[in-house]
Amino acid sequence: GIDPFTGEAIAKFNFNGDTQVEMSFRKGERITLLRQVDENWYEGRIPGTSRQGIFPITYVDVIKRPL
């Protein structure tokens, strides 16, 4: 089901994660935001896939912030 505490964002740019914990994505992908890790990073996942990880806040347009 849908978790009411998650947020939502759209990727503004392609992001290629450097490490296992970073999640790569392509511009235009819809991302579920799980939490804000710190002032620069979100943790999120791509709905319908097993992809999950952290990524820079500046790479996405936030539609709804996670609670």
Rank of each mutant, 00 (worst) to 15 (best):
G1P: 12
I2E: 15
I2L: 13
I2Q: 14
I2H: 14
D3M: 12
D3T: 12
D3E: 14
D3K: 11
F5W: 15
F5E: 11
F5H: 14
F5G: 14
T6L: 13
G7Y: 13
G7I: 10
G7Q: 10
G7A: 08
E8V: 13
E8F: 12
E8N: 07
E8Q: 10
E8H: 11
A9Q: 02
I10S: 03
I10A: 03
I10E: 05
I10G: 01
I10R: 06
I10T: 06
A11K: 00
K12L: 14
K12E: 03
K12Y: 03
K12M: 10
K12I: 13
F13R: 13
F13I: 09
N14K: 05
N14G: 06
N14P: 08
F15E: 00
F15R: 04
F15L: 02
F15Q: 01
N16F: 13
N16G: 06
N16S: 11
N16L: 10
G17D: 02
G17L: 03
D18N: 14
D18C: 15
D18E: 14
D18Y: 14
Q20L: 13
V21E: 15
V21T: 11
E22T: 08
E22W: 06
E22K: 10
E22Y: 12
M23W: 04
S24G: 07
S24E: 04
F25Q: 00
R26L: 14
K27D: 04
K27S: 08
K27T: 08
G28H: 05
E29L: 01
R30K: 11
R30D: 03
T32K: 09
T32C: 11
L33G: 04
L33A: 03
L33Q: 03
L34N: 04
L34D: 05
R35F: 07
R35Q: 08
V37T: 04
V37Q: 05
V37D: 02
D38F: 08
D38I: 05
E39W: 08
N40R: 10
N40Q: 13
W41C: 07
W41P: 00
W41D: 02
Y42G: 04
Y42C: 07
Y42I: 06
E43P: 00
G44Q: 00
I46G: 01
P47R: 09
P47I: 09
G48R: 06
G48V: 02
G48P: 05
S50K: 12
Q52G: 06
G53E: 00
I54K: 07
I54F: 10
I54A: 04
I54C: 07
I54V: 09
F55V: 07
P56L: 06
I57S: 08
I57D: 04
T58V: 12
T58M: 13
T58R: 11
T58W: 14
Y59L: 10
V60N: 00
V60K: 00
V60M: 03
V60Y: 01
D61V: 14
V62H: 04
V62I: 10
V62T: 07
V62S: 03
I63H: 06
K64W: 07
R65F: 15
R65S: 14
R65W: 15
P66M: 04
P66E: 06
P66I: 06
L67K: 04
L67Q: 15
